[in-house]
Each structure stands twice: as structure tokens, then as C-alpha cells.
Write a protein that binds this DNA or RNA. Structure first.
Length: 943
RNA sequence: GGGCUUAUAGCUCAGUUGGCAGAGCAUUCGGCUGAUAACCGAAAGGUCGGUGGUUCGACUCCACCUAAGCCCA
């Protein structure tokens, strides 16, 4: 009967902050709130006078939905931007999109069932633009849904006229400064479609090819080196048709090479065959040698610069050194045709070999090729083999089935064929060396990525800028129709840039060349006045790689250089490098001060996500099911510097972690319903010790979280916050405080003190969580906002560290207490297992101390020990030299024995503690003395 | 095949200059029913990817191997 009356004197938590977050719905309301508030603009206004901290967005490709990688990337950027914004930095975030290029071109051609030859260029480009715009719009909404703040209404787009104009201007400056040249380079070429093919346009299928061993007669110097007569160098190839273009034979400088004399068969005694010594055991079987002898062995390096006779033509083939030579296949002597192979091409530069490719666009040998002119290369294979055999140069001819690139469209095998392409010379003006120097001025996170970036710059070939495609920015070069020399004077460039800025780059395709060159332009070579346009377009990496010019130097809300670039590890060869090279060439400075590299998302077997495996985790699905804050929490929880595992169980776990944090916030909030910090706050000096401890812990937390965010190590911040919520708050501080909050007088100093701690801790937590749990933090903010606070938590300032609240001694004191608490819990648990007690308040503890220091330590907590252990009675006993009583349990703590028994007295029906004072009050016979006092003081009851 | 990187409990992460493998979550069992689709406790869970070496002693240093990832070939 008294139950309900007493119940009314208990101060239970009250809040509208729901336990069940319902984020998928709630977040959309918050997005609307931000939109109506103009949150992004307000943040920019707030920080307009602040120091710059510019994060430059690497543009995702505008096709398809966002995926885990792009979601992770933008979320990490959002953490940085929100945190820096709270610290008062001026850090506008301008998202970008990469719009040109092959993937879109492919998709469209496939949809149209056409090839690049039979579409009308302008019409096709219009369609491509629409396609890119459509996906740009889709991705924009998806990124916004993640809670990413930015200049979404004015992103940078690589197909904007102003952007294209700056890109062309950049090309023209590089051209004028001599970085750009036109040269021959082998590319994948389809002889049916008559076009170059990009890597993405290839399909690999098994193909049967000839496998032949051919000997090249070596010169006298080789004979002398081995001390033999008639030495021949043996090569192996599966493309006999490339032999007419052979210019060299490559050997490895570190391998051993032997001259071998075979004593039987057609070659008996006729010649000494040179091949890598280690290949001999394998080759003697393949070539059927039974009786042979090794005549001499030399180092590969010694062969450099010697010559052989070309097996089909009247010229020499040089012996060169190359590290790419391997021993697992062939002879260790590699047939080299710079016009028909990637490695061959690369090594050709070093030895000044011609990029010789006597094959036309239909795959037929050109007239200069003796005996085979006009023959299609695959058909010529047999002919060439016969020829070699008749000249006695063929050692072996079989067939081999191997994986071989085919045209994705017509399914026919492709060839490597050298064509004229535009390049950036990475060694011009010491570009490579200057880049390597400037790389050192950049802070690379994690540190090892600097080494990696350096290696890619050191090893990279010249940058091939041209693509024979439709959807991109044209290479802005004209050719004189008379002397065919390229034409791009600074005046012509300025003229063109102005046109593009005004009309967009489509003007290149729309207008006649006469309207694109300045009036009266004359060829610098022959003085001719007639020109034609280059038809190739620029590599899309040149588009995005010049964003530091097209964006950073152009917009009022940007500046050069950026403080930070943050992308996946594939960008070491991609955007980081294209940006760095162009920036060094154009401005002699890095476009970024710091570069953060992230790993990739993998499935739960740590394997790459792929459509065919069906192991893809879709971020949009996570957002729909759990909410963006759960996705964001996951992003914060992982060490992004290495690869990250994703999968539904992981998000399930993140949802649990989210709920824990949310419930902690909710509990703090629920106990503040009758608290006004201005009127009710208790000064720290007047607080109970444990409250001061809690304030101290909160400051340590702030310190560590701040440092973690300064270092962009969000997972450290996440772990600290989560552990604080679970260990410091939920299982200790909040648990022991329940009694005080609920049963003390509503406006008593003890209760006000704990509420003061709650209010400060909640505010601190909310601000710290704002960059990560952006939505939930906003929801909390709406509940705790004071009169002078901004409308959004994202407009608030990062909390200042209050060093005076930190108390190392208190921290250690309670750490020690908690070790005792843990022992107490074990004792109680043992008792529980025997069924003697249920609720810990039913217990009375006796702490026997055999150690005086421990005795003093525990005694110093006085009556508070009951509260700290959540039991009804604690007695601290000096054991001295005596043995502990039989019922006392030994503990992990030296000198501490714990006895447990039933608490004396009866259970107070109000505070549930057992007390001998229950029954003393006439009016409240079921209540303890403490509760009676509260009722008398705060609720006007009689004693 | 080459360069770089990763590997500690089911999951996310700690582990200082070598010195008895840790935390949180999840799991199991239990308590509470005044944070209740919550809260508290206890227990169980590891040959530190593998092999070899240096050392009195190795998760830590060295070599090799395996698996995976990015980039290149």
C-alpha cells in the first residue's frame, strides 16, 4: 500500500530520447533539419576567418552506385572536415567527380550496340555527358545520406568548361615547356576493328600459338668470349610474326650463360648454342638433346653490346641486358621487338633502339618486310617458321596453349603494335628527380607509403597521355597540313582556352579547325596556314591529375596547395602520382602537404569483393538496415591504413556497439530532466570524491580522443569512447550512482553533484562523438542545448581541455579500488552460485587485511565502500599477524581476504538496502533511517 | 615473377627499449526487474599465420615459407 507513495519519491530517469534509435527514419529528419538550417554554409561562415585546413577530394568515377570503398573514403574525409571545423579551421569540402573516360564510353557503346567508328561524335558525347550527370546525381544523394557535409550544390566536375579550359591550359604550358612529345609506343591493337584497345577492353581466352626455338648466329666477339667457333644465341617465342621486327636479344646481367655443343642430330658440331645455364636441364628435354657438352660459361653482363645476325633480314640484332629476363620459360635469351612488346619497348629507350613495327592497322606486314609483305601476321606465322627451318635456324617448333588477350568486341586475338602517341617526358627538366625531392616535403601516412610512392615514381615510364577515344578532353594540338608538324603556340593555346572556357570542350568537335586556331596562324615549321586537328583525347588521369589547377587555384573557397589528400592505395600510381607530376611540372611544388593512404575492403575471408563471388557488402544496404551512424561507427572503428574486413556479422556487432553508446547517452540524459546547470551545478571542490574521479576521467578521455583525431587515428578515438562508456560509466560509475540519483533528495547536494557530472560528461561525449556519430550527436544536442548554444552540434566548438580537473592520484586510487571491486564481485558470484544471495544488496562484506597499507587504503573510503561495491554493509578488519577466519576467501590481491554473509537488518522498501534502522520509524516502519530523513526533508513527511 | 603491405581470442583492436599474452564486444552461465527489445557479474575462449635462427629468455629481432591485398609485369 505504501509502495506507490514511496515510488513517487524515487527520482527515476525520464527522457524522450528513445532507446530504439530507428536511425533509418530519424536520420532523414536530421538531414532535412541540416538542409533547412543551411548547416554547411553556416559552418563556412563561422570559420571564414579561421586558419585554412583544406582537404581536396579525389573525384570518384561517375558511374554506378557508391560502394564500400567510396563510402569509407567519403566518411573518413567527413570525420576530418567535421573535426577540423569544430576546431575553428576553415575547411570547405568541395566534392568532385571524374566524368570522362572509357568505362562510360564502353557502357554507352554497349547499350547502343555500336563501335566508336559508327557513332556521331557530338551526339555520343552528349549522351556520355547525360550518363555522367545522371550518376553524379545518384552518388551525390547517396553521399549526402551518409551524413557527409560538403558543397554539394557546387561540386567540381571534370567536364565543366572552366575545368576543361584549365586542363587544356595546363597541357599547353607543359607543351611550351618541352615536357610533351609525340612518340611511338606499342599498344594492344585489334586488327579486325582496326583500333587500339585499352587494358579494360581486353578479354583473356586460351589460344593455341606456335612455340619455337630459334638460333641467332652470333658474331666473332661472342665466339671469342666462349672460346668456340660458330656460336648461336637461342631464343624462344610464341609469336613468330614478331621476328621480322626483332632488333635485339635480351639477357639477364646476373645469370650464367653457357655455350653448349650438341653431338647428334641436324646441329651436331655445327654450332655452339648459347643459353642460360639454369635452363639447360629443362631444355635438353624439350629440345631432345641426349649427347651434349657444356663448352664454356660466362656472366650475362659480359655479353652486352655484342651482335647476332637477324634470322630473316640482312641486319644485326644486338645483345642487351634486361632485368625482366626470367628462367622459368624459354632460354634466358629473350627475343626483343620494341614495336611489339611492352617490356621490349621500355628497354628500347635505354639502348636507343628504334620502335620498329612494320605492321599496318589491318595486321599486315608493310612492304619493307622482305618475303612476307602484305601477309596478315597470324597467317604469316607458319610461313616464317618454314623460312627459319629452311635456313637451318629453327631448333624446335611445337604448339602451346596459353591465355591470350582477345578483343572484347569481336573476340579475335589482338596484337601489340606501336603507334604514335603523346607522352609526358618524366625526365625533362629533371621532372622525376625534382618530384622525388619534393616527395620528401610531404607527410605520408602511414609512413611506409612514402617509400612506396618513391618507388613508383622512380620506376615509371614516360606518361602516355593520348587515347584514341571519343569521351574526353581532346589533345589540343594542330598539325600543319603541309609539313605535318604539330602546332601549338602559346597564342594558339590562349585562343583555344578562351573558346573552351566559353563554350565547353565540345567546340573542338563542333567547329572547323579554322575557327579553333587564331586568325592568321602560321605553321612554325613551314609557314603554312592550313591545319588539321589531333583526333586523340587525353588520358582521364590527366583530367583528375590537374584538379589542383582546375579546382584549388580557381575557386574562392579553395587554395593551393591542399593540406590533405586521402585515398586508397591504388592512387599511388593513380591520382597521387598524376597530381604530383603535373603539379611539380607546372608549379614546382607538391599539391598536398599530407597524403593519407587507406587500404581496401575485403570480405570475411580477407578476399577481394567481387560481383562473381557475390561477397559484396553494399553500404546502402547497411544504411537502410542499421542507419548511416552505424556505418560511420564502423568506419571509425577500423584501422584504415591496412585492408579492412566487411560483412554483415561485423555490422551486426557495430550495431551492438552503437546501442551501448546510445544507451549510455540516454541514461545520462534521463537523469537530467530536473537539472538546470546554471542554477543547480555543484562546484568540483564540494563534490563527493567519486564524482571528482568521474570528471577527471572525462578529461583524460578528451585528451586522448583529441590526440587520436589530430593523428587521424579514428579507431583509437572510437575505442577510447566505447571503453569509457562501458567500463568507466556503465559498469562502474553509473551503476553505483543509481542509488544516489534515485533515492537521495531531488535537490540534495549529492544528487545535484552527480547531475553536474552527468551534464558535463554528456556534453563532452556529445561533442566528441559529433564528427563520427553525426546524426546521433545532433539528436542528443537537441536535448541538451543551452540558450546560447548554436542550433547544431556541428556548429559548436571542440571542447577545451580542463587540465585542472585531471587528477592522476584519484585515477590511480580508483583503479586500485576497482581491482578490489573485481575480487568482491567474484566472491559474491560464488555465493550466488550456491543460491545464498541474489541481489548484491543482500550481502554484507568483511574485508580482512593482512597488510596495513591495504587496510589504510580501504578504510579511507569509509562508509562509501558500501556504495562502491553495491552491498548493504562493509566491514574492514585488521588481520594483523592472525590467520583469516575459515569462511574468508583468499583473493588475487596479496593480503586481502573476503568474508561474505547476510546483511544485518531488514530490506528498506524504498532504497532496497538492508539496514538495522528499518522499523525504527513509526510512520514509515518499512523504511531505513536514511530514506526517512529524505522523506522528512524533501517530501514533508513526518518522522 | 617483382615492389610495397598485412597476419595476436569468433569480431574490432592493445601489447612501450625482447621479461608470466591483454581490453571491449560476441558466446555460455547467473543476477536484477527502479536504464527493461535495457542494466550488472562470472566463466570459457590464444602453439601470437608456419618453419628455422639469434638470445638465459622472442608476439617483439633475423631468414625463409604460406595465405591475402594494392600496384606492376
Amino acid at each position: 500500500m505504501q509502495e506507490t507513495r514511496y515510488k513517487n519519491t524515487i527520482n527515476l530517469p525520464r527522457t524522450n530520447f528513445a532507446m530504439k534509435a530507428n536511425l533509418p527514419v530519424k536520420e532523414k529528419e536530421i538531414l532535412k533539419f541540416w538542409d533547412e538550417l543551411g548547416l554547411y554554409s553556416r559552418i563556412q561562415e563561422k570559420n571564414a576567418g579561421g586558419e585554412w585546413y583544406l582537404l581536396h577530394d579525389g573525384p570518384p568515377y561517375a558511374n554506378g552506385d557508391i560502394h564500400m570503398g567510396t563510402a569509407l573514403n567519403k566518411t573518413l574525409k567527413d570525420f576530418v572536415v567535421k573535426y577540423k571545423s569544430m576546431r575553428g579551421y576553415r575547411c570547405p569540402f568541395v566534392p568532385g567527380w571524374d566524368c570522362h573516360g572509357l568505362p562510360i564510353e564502353h557502357r554507352l557503346l554497349r547499350e547502343l550496340h555500336k563501335t566508336k567508328h559508327d557513332v556521331e561524335v557530338l551526339d555520343f558525347r552528349r549522351k556520355a555527358k547525360e550518363f555522367a550527370l545522371k550518376w553524379l546525381g545518384v552518388q551525390r544523394e547517396q553521399f549526402k545520406r551518409l551524413g557527409v557535409l560538403g558543397e554539394w550544390d557546387k561540386p567540381y566536375v571534370t567536364m565543366d568548361p572552366a575545368y576543361e579550359a584549365k586542363e587544356i591550359e595546363g597541357f599547353a604550358r607543359l607543351y611550351a615547356d618541352g615536357y610533351i612529345y609525340r612518340g611511338l609506343k606499342p599498344v594492344h591493337w585489334c586488327i579486325v576493328c582496326e583500333t587500339a584497345l585499352a587494358e579494360a577492353e581486353l578479354e583473356y581466352h586460351d589460344k593455341e600459338s606456335p612455340s619455337i626455338y630459334v638460333r641467332f648466329k652470333a658474331d666473332e666477339r661472342v665466339n671469342r668470349l666462349f672460346g668456340v667457333e660458330n656460336a648461336s644465341i637461342v631464343i624462344w617465342t610464341t609469336t613468330p610474326w614478331t621476328l621480322p621486327a626483332n632488333l635485339a636479344v635480351a639477357v639477364h646481367p646476373d645469370f650464367q650463360y653457357s655455350a653448349v655443343r650438341v653431338n647428334h642430330g641436324q646441329d651436331a658440331h655445327a654450332t655452339s648454342l648459347v643459353l642460360a645455364s639454369e635452363t639447360l636441364p629443362r631444355l635438353k628435354d624439350e629440345l631432345g638433346w641426349e649427347d651434349y657438352e657444356v663448352v664454356a660459361t660466362v656472366n650475362g653482363a659480359q655479353l652486352e653490346g655484342m651482335n647476332c645476325d637477324h634470322p630473316l633480314a640482312d641486319r644485326k640484332s644486338r645483345v642487351i641486358l634486361a632485368d625482366f629476363v626470367t628462367l622459368d620459360q624459354g632460354t634466358g635469351c629473350v627475343h626483343t621487338a620494341p614495336g611489339h612488346g611492352q617490356e621490349d619497348y621500355e628497354i628500347a629507350g635505354k639502348y636507343n633502339l628504334e620502335i620498329y613495327s612494320p605492321v599496318d592497322e589491318r595486321g599486315r606486314f608493310t612492304p619493307e618486310v622482305r618475303d612476307f609483305a602484305g601477309k596478315q601476321v597470324f597467317e604469316a606465322n607458319d610461313l616464317i617458321v618454314q623460312h627459319l627451318r629452311s635456313r637451318g635456324l629453327l631448333l624446335e617448333a611445337t604448339k602451346v596453349t596459353h591465355s591470350y588477350p582477345h578483343c572484347w568486341r569481336c573476340k579475335s586475338p589482338v596484337i601489340f603494335r606501336a603507334t604514335r602517341q603523346w607522352f609526358i617526358n618524366v625526365n625533362h627538366n629533371n621532372l622525376r628527380r625534382r618530384t622525388l625531392e619534393l616527395v620528401k616535403q610531404v607527410r605520408w601516412v602511414p609512413a611506409f607509403t612514402e617509400k612506396r610512392f618513391l618507388a613508383t615514381v622512380e620506376g615509371r615510364p614516360d606518361w602516355c597521355l593520348s587515347r584514341q577515344r571519343l569521351w574526353g578532353v581532346p589533345i589540343p594540338v594542330f598539325y600543319c597540313t603541309n609539313c605535318h608538324s604539330p602546332f601549338l603556340t602559346p597564342e594558339a593555346a590562349d585562343h583555344l582556352v578562351a573558346l573552351v572556357r566559353k563554350h565547353g570542350v565540345d567546340i573542338w568537335f563542333e567547329k572547323d579547325v579554322k575557327e579553333l586556331v587564331p586568325p592568321g596562324a602560321k605553321c612554325t615549321g613551314c609557314g603554312g596556314g592550313e591545319f588539321e586537328k589531333e583526333t586523340a583525347i587525353l588520358d582521364v588521369w590527366f583530367d583528375s591529375g590537374t584538379s589542383h589547377q582546375g579546382v584549388l587555384t580557381q575557386r574562392n573557397d579553395q587554395k593551393y596547395p591542399a593540406e590533405l589528400y586521402l585515398e586508397g592505395s591504388d592512387q599511388h600510381r593513380g591520382w597521387f602520382q598524376s597530381s604530383m607530376l603535373t603539379a611539380v611540372a607546372l608549379t614546382n611544388s607538391p599539391p598536398f602537404r599530407e597524403v593519407i593512404t587507406t587500404g581496401w575492403t575485403l570480405d570475411e575471408q580477407r578476399e577481394k569483393e567481387s560481383k562473381s563471388k557475390g561477397n559484396i557488402t553494399n553500404p546502402l544496404e547497411i544504411v537502410q538496415k542499421y542507419g548511416a551512424d552505424v556505418l560511420r561507427l564502423w568506419v571509425s572503428s577500423v584501422d584504415y591504413s591496412s585492408d579492412m574486413v566487411v560483412g554483415m556479422p561485423i555490422f551486426e556487432q557495430m550495431a551492438d556497439a552503437y546501442r551501448k553508446i546510445r544507451n549510455t547517452l540516454r541514461f545520462l540524459l534521463g537523469n537530467l530532466y530536473d537539472f538546470d546547470e546554471e542554477k543547480d551545478a555543484v562546484a568540483r571542490e564540494e563534490m563527493p570524491e567519486v564524482d571528482r574521479w568521474a570528471l577527471s576521467r572525462a578529461q583524460w578521455l578528451l585528451d586522448e580522443v583529441t590526440r587520436a583525431l589530430e593523428d587521424f587515428e579514428f579507431y583509437r578515438a572510437y575505442r577510447r569512447i566505447h571503453t569509457f562508456c562501458t567500463v568507466d560509466l556503465s559498469s562502474f560509475y553509473l551503476d553505483i550512482l543509481k542509488d544516489r540519483l534515485y533515492t537521495a533528495g531531488p535537490s540534495s547536494r549529492e544528487r545535484r553533484s552527480s547531475q553536474t557530472v552527468f551534464a558535463r560528461t554528456l556534453r563532452l561525449l556529445d561533442l566528441m562523438l559529433a564528427p563520427i556519430l553525426s546524426f546521433t550527436a545532433e539528436e542528443v544536442w537537441a536535448n541538451i542545448r543551452r540558450k546560447n548554444d548554436p542550433q547544431s552540434v556541428h556548429l559548436a566548438s571542440w571542447p577545451e581541455l580542463d587540465d585542472s580537473a585531471r587528477d592522476r592520484d584519484l585515477d590511480e586510487r580508483y583503479e586500485r579500488l576497482n581491482r578490489v571491486r573485481s575480487e568482491v564481485a567474484k566472491v559474491i558470484e560464488r555465493e550466488r552460485a550456491q543460491g545464498t544471495i541474489g541481489n548484491s544488496l543482500e550481502a554484507k562484506l568483511v574485508l580482512y587485511c593482512a597488510d596495513e597499507e591495504l587496510l589504510d587504503f580501504l578504510s579511507s573510503f569509509g562508509r562509501n565502500l558500501q556504495m562502491l561495491f553495491i552491498v548493504s554493509s562493509v566491514e574492514v578488519v585488521n588481520l594483523g599477524q592472525k590467520e583469516p577466519p575459515a569462511e574468508a576467501k583468499a583473493t588475487e590481491i596479496e593480503g586481502l581476504f573476503i568474508g561474505i554473509g547476510e546483511a544485518p537488518g531488514r530490506k528498506c522498501s524504498r532504497c532496497w538496502k538492508y539496514s538495522e534502522t528499518v522499523g525504527e520509524s513509526v510512520h514509515h516502519p518499512e523504511m531505513c533511517g536514511d530514506c526517512v530523513k529524505v522523506l522528512v526533508t524533501y517530501f514533508g513527511e513526518e518522522a
